[in-house]
């Protein structure tokens, strides 16, 4: 398997605060990897650097062998990177279908008109929003907005999908639906990096996990082993539990 994403020695400093420090890991094509760590450990910052929201202060990020660190988001997205946001970002003045069509219109294939419409409806069906296309994005529930956001990300047909706590806040039934949805994406060959706190989902989905604490990588390996790692347990629960 080839490496699709390689982060080498990346750091991000905000003024005096170092949010991510000398982080190195890579994803192979078709892998589903969890990015774990306590709150404030720098997970979302990593996502933001991959998607081009921030430029790293140091280090390189390679996508399929091509350096992308420091490029703006609108140049990274068409290279096959799509994401969802920790707090859902719907486009409130548009309809549900238009939200998805946006990604089609400006993504890799620049689709517009009837084809874009058909694709958008297809992706809405994929995430369980069939028949909801004409509702306004600001009128649907939080969970449906999350689904819509995923459809928007999928519409770009990404090679690499970044999910930032996409499963958070779902009830048990919704969680099962969400997990099987991500599994079906994995079967399609998509590479997925997910930041997640829901342990059941991590165990069910991720073959491998990268764990961060205070901006540094403290573990990287098969999910079961990583979750038993004393460093990881200490990072989450404190010294007493190690």
């Amino acid at each position: 398997m080839t490496e699709i994403l390689t982060l080498s020695g990346i750091s991000k400093r905000f003024g005096g605060l170092t949010a991510v420090s000398d982080l190195t890991f890579s994803l192979k094509a078709g892998e589903v990897v969890g990015l774990l760590g306590p709150n404030g450990s720098g997970k979302t910052t990593v996502m933001n650097m991959i998607s081009g929201f921030f430029a790293p202060s140091q280090g390189t990020i390679a996508l399929k062998g091509e350096a992308i660190q420091g490029l703006p988001s609108h140049r990274i997205a068409p290279k096959g990177v799509a994401r969802t946001f920790q707090l859902v970002r719907a486009l409130p003045s548009l309809t549900v279908a238009q939200n998805v069509e946006t990604a089609l219109a400006f993504g890799r294939h620049k689709l517009w008109g009837r084809i874009a419409r058909e694709r958008a409806l297809h992706h809405l069906e994929e995430v369980g929003l069939a028949g909801r296309a004409e509702e306004r994005a600001c009128d649907i529930t939080y969970i449906d907005q999350k689904r819509m956001e995923l459809a928007r990300a999928l519409a770009t047909e990404p090679d690499l999908l970044l999910l930032d706590e996409w499963l958070a806040g779902l009830n048990p039934t919704e969680l099962q639906t969400g997990i099987s949805l991500i599994r079906s994406l994995e079967r399609q060959g998509m590479t997925i990096l997910l930041v997640e706190h829901v342990m059941d989902a991590i165990r069910a989905l991720c073959s491998r996990c990268v764990v961060m604490n205070a901006g540094r990588k403290i573990a990287d390996g098969a999910t079961d082993e990583v979750l038993r790692d004393p460093d990881v347990v200490r990072a989450y629960l404190g010294d007493d539990h190690a």
Partner: peptide, 24 residues
């Protein structure tokens, strides 16, 4: 047009706009 859609998206949320590939 697509430009019109881009403008609406930018008006709603610039972060989403650029992540969708719009050069704001």
């Amino acid at each position: 047009s697509r430009l019109g859609l881009a403008l609406k998206v930018i008006g709603d949320d610039e972060v989403v706009a650029s992540h969708c590939g719009i050069n704001i």
